[in-house]
């Protein structure tokens, strides 16, 4: 792990995440989430389904983006270059193989996201992450992505560009699958922020387990019809605070 992971998973990274509730706004409207215990249940459920899928996709995207000569080029302040950077050589352009590999992963994300509203939300957040990631960690691998990739695919590329490992990318994806919704619930229900921080902190072992599983062969394909339905109902509302 390097400190780049802390930046990537920081809720203050300006990638647009704060305008998405991960379904928690509609879960509150429907009465499923109303207190810290029901929030914890929702987050655990989200982590082990949507979180597991995004962790798998992010890890795979990092693996593809880091392989061979397309290993992420890490900007190197000062004379000391971090290991793995191609110091002195111009960064290689994104290969057509990498373009195809990332496009394939993007399609896998589509296939695992039956809700059109969630597909749109994921691509919106992917676009936001690409915008800030390109600035933070310049690398030719960004050029291999479509204009608005699914968020976990963009996250995997960001991890590679930042010199992180697939396990790091999976951990970031798993953590982000609960940290955003936790904050959204805190705002919407005016919960005690210390209580919500404790819920999120105690999910750490479960987040680690999801990140470990993400490295196994084959992409996870867990689904949660409730999250899909909540997202579809939410998208039809005219009175919402959050984009999803």
């Amino acid at each position: 792990m390097t400190a780049a992971l802390l930046t990537l998973a920081d809720s203050r990274l300006p990638a647009g995440g704060h305008t998405h509730s991960g379904g928690v706004e509609q879960a509150i409207a429907a009465g499923h989430v109303h207190d810290p215990a029901s929030l914890a249940a929702f987050l655990l459920r989200r982590l082990t389904t949507a979180g597991a899928v995004t962790a798998g996709l992010a890890a795979a995207a990092t693996t593809r983006s880091s392989s061979g000569r397309h290993r992420g080029h890490v900007p190197s302040p000062g004379a000391r270059s971090p290991a793995g950077s191609s110091s002195g050589e111009p960064p290689a352009p994104a290969s057509s193989e990498l373009v195809a590999a990332l496009r394939h992963l993007d399609g896998e994300a589509d296939a695992r996201t039956p809700s059109p509203a969630l597909r749109a939300a994921s691509r919106q957040q992917g676009r936001g992450l690409v915008r800030v990631g390109r600035r933070a960690w310049p690398s030719p691998v960004w050029d291999a992505l479509p204009a608005a990739p699914h968020h976990p695919v963009a996250l995997g590329v960001a991890a590679a560009a930042g010199g992180l490992t697939p396990r790091d990318a999976a951990a970031a994806a798993a953590y982000l699958s609960v940290s955003g919704p936790a904050t959204a619930a805190q705002r919407l229900l005016a919960l005690d922020p210390l209580t919500v921080a404790a819920v999120t902190a105690r999910l750490a072992p479960a987040i680690d387990a999801v990140a470990d599983d993400a490295l196994r062969d084959g992409l996870p394909a867990d689904t949660d019809p409730l999250l899909d339905l909540l997202a579809e109902v939410h998208a039809t509302r005219g009175d919402r605070f959050f984009a999803s």
Partner: peptide, 21 residues
């Protein structure tokens, strides 16, 4: 129109992603 996630000042200052989009 953009949604601001309960935080209008965040959307115009701290994380301007939705507005840039």
């Amino acid at each position: 129109a953009v949604q601001t996630g309960c935080c209008p000042h965040t959307a115009i200052r701290d994380d301007i992603t939705a507005n840039l989009d």
